[in-house]
Simulated assay, not measured.
Amino acid sequence: MIVCFLALGAKVFYKTDRVFIKLPKESKVKILTIIFCTMLMTLYFLINLITSWGQVFNLMPEMMWSSICVALAAGIGEEFLCRVTLFNLFTKIFENKQYVLLWSSIFSSVLFGLFHLINLGHGAALDATFQQVYYATAIGLAFSYLHIFTNRIWSCILMHFLLDLQPDIANMNAEASPWSPILIIFGIVIIVSIICIYAFNKRVNKVEN
């Protein structure tokens, strides 16, 4: 409830969660968006999210609702903090830059990743935490493009909620996975997301000029 009130406050403060008053026509960026969406769906399947959702609903009622509430709080709170508040802050900082959307996305996503270092204070393993920082940065870039392309934050909240809807979401004792697949999979996410944001930003610059 606290997270929801904070998110509502951010919504009222900013008046809107939109990036543009009027969303520019996507033109050739649509092709990149199809690739991006395919990548995102593949990512969801690769990390066995559907299996995790089934496990959540097979938990005891108290643990099931706990997982749902934590995932929902993370989806709402973190998206308003990083994709709205920090993103808007960096658009002001980089407003004179040619690729303001790209730089704002990168910096807000890196901070989103670094926020996960707080898990070290809750007893999380060092390797597992560094992996969280890396893939959270990658996911942050993907969600930044989703926010920019849709011009709204709600799809990011939904995707974030579904991503975090896991039976051990409230558990800080995550174990580290092998680095190789994480580096490859989320490295691709970073590259594709940056290309998509760059292309969209370039399109916006042409429209505005």
Rank of each mutant, 00 (worst) to 15 (best):
V189G: 07
L111H: 02
F107P: 03
A142T: 04
I197E: 01
N201D: 15
K11M: 11
R18M: 04
A10Y: 15
I76G: 02
S67R: 05
I188R: 01
K25T: 14
L146G: 06
L101K: 00
V56M: 06
I194E: 03
E208R: 14
E62L: 10
F130Q: 01
M172P: 15
L23S: 10
V56C: 02
S67I: 01
L120V: 09
F115H: 07
I139L: 15
C69F: 12
K202R: 14
W65F: 11
F149Y: 12
I169A: 02
R18I: 05
A71V: 06
L89K: 02
Y198H: 09
I184Q: 09
Q166L: 06
N171G: 12
I182L: 14
C156L: 08
I148V: 09
A125G: 14
L86G: 08
D17S: 10
I185K: 12
H160L: 00
I185R: 11
Y145Q: 07
F186N: 12
I2D: 06
R152K: 15
V207W: 02
V189L: 01
I106A: 04
P181F: 12
S52W: 10
K206D: 08
A170N: 13
V192G: 06
G77D: 00
Q131W: 07
H147N: 02
T51G: 13
M63I: 07
A71H: 01
W154C: 09
F143Y: 13
W154E: 13
L8R: 05
I139P: 10
A74L: 08
P178Y: 03
S52P: 03
M60H: 13
F90R: 02
F143D: 07
F115I: 15
Q166I: 11
H147F: 09
Y135M: 02
A74Y: 01
